[in-house]
Write a protein that binds this DNA or RNA. Structure first.
Lengths: 181, 181
DNA sequence: CTTTTTTAGTTAGGCTCCTAATTATAAGCC
DNA sequence: GGCTTATAATTAGGAGCCTAACTAAAAAAG
């Protein structure tokens, strides 16, 4: 999800040379990316300590049976869709998870093209041992904010997310840029 | 910076099974990551259209001479530090940028271990042609927020960033988690 | 039925990033 | 001077992501 972490000081400086630039927008944007990056890195470090990556973690989460009798996803295609990666990528993730004994592939009796991916006891133990710490970390990150501030944050981020979704649809630059006119 | 994009619906559902979980914190955290991811993807798409990646873009930004006579960085080591990547990674980035004619490597007379990396005219043209659209995109993303909302957002994100920095320092989980007690 | 189309999953090859080991040079110490 | 340590950059090998091409099986069309 978050990677790279360019150092944006230089970018901000360069930005000042652009007359048509909206300074508060740039500042908000850079803060958003920097903050997510920091937060993400905290969690990623925790993941790495458990031998996980974002992709591996997502797969395990999707495979957990949350008491309903069925996990969120079980075939590679479902997993890829819900994880937001391609099927090819999911094949690779399942490959390494299977190699490490965290999941198993079982072929479907009715449709021989399909597979069913399941958590092994080892995988189940790993993810259940990992999650409490994960949730504690996320809680710690947001802990400086009051309940009201959290609501405000979610609301403001929601506006940006909505705008990003609009811009992602109208893919060329021009229409998105002109959306405020 | 942002990649992967796990679909957190399942995660949120799973989270409900954890009694010690702080729901508003999880929600805020997930919103933060999802929003940055969406915003990041919009910009990354724009970068790709220009034949750039986050890493390549950062290098070019660092190499721009912003009228001061000297760019932010010029040796691979400086570039790596300011870009937040390893020197090995920077070597690879410079390799492909040099291959594409965007930058040049010149050896230092005094210290033969050192190199000086410079933008070629082609690289300079590319980044200068790219930036206006980049800034317009970031402005569009934040456009739904009023000036006051932008200030609030920056303030709230700042609190989280500060907390993340604290947690990144106290690296093991336990101390960070207990920081509120 | 046979042929075409669709679907599930994988393979192949590329990119960006990483860590760890390596090469070459410079600097400090005896 | 000669040895050790530190520094600049690179190389080697791996992980996770991508797109595009491929294989196998099921479904649809004739």
């Amino acid at each position: 999800m978050l990677k790279d972490l360019p150092r944006y000081e230089c970018l901000l400086e360069a930005a000042k040379q652009f007359p048509d630039l909206d300074p508060s927008a740039s500042e908000a944007y850079l803060h958003l990316l920097r903050t997510s990056d920091e937060a993400f890195n905290v969690l990623t470090t925790h993941l790495h300590q458990a031998g996980l990556s974002q992709g591996r973690f997502t797969v395990l989460m999707l495979l957990i049976d949350k008491g309903t009798g069925t996990p969120c996803a079980s075939t590679p295609a479902e997993l890829a869709d819900k994880a937001g990666v391609t099927r090819a990528t999911m094949t690779g993730l399942i490959d390494t998870l299977e190699r490490d004994g965290m999941v198993s592939r079982d072929s479907d009796r009715d449709d021989r093209r399909m597979l069913s991916v399941k958590l092994t006891p080892k995988g189940e133990a790993l993810i259940h041992g990992y999650l409490p710490g994960h949730f504690k970390l996320t809680a710690s990150l947001v802990q400086p904010l009051t309940e009201n501030e959290r609501k405000t944050l979610v609301r403001l981020l929601g506006k940006i997310m909505q705008q990003a979704a609009i811009m992602a649809d109208t893919n060329p630059i021009a229409p998105a840029v002109l959306s405020e006119s």
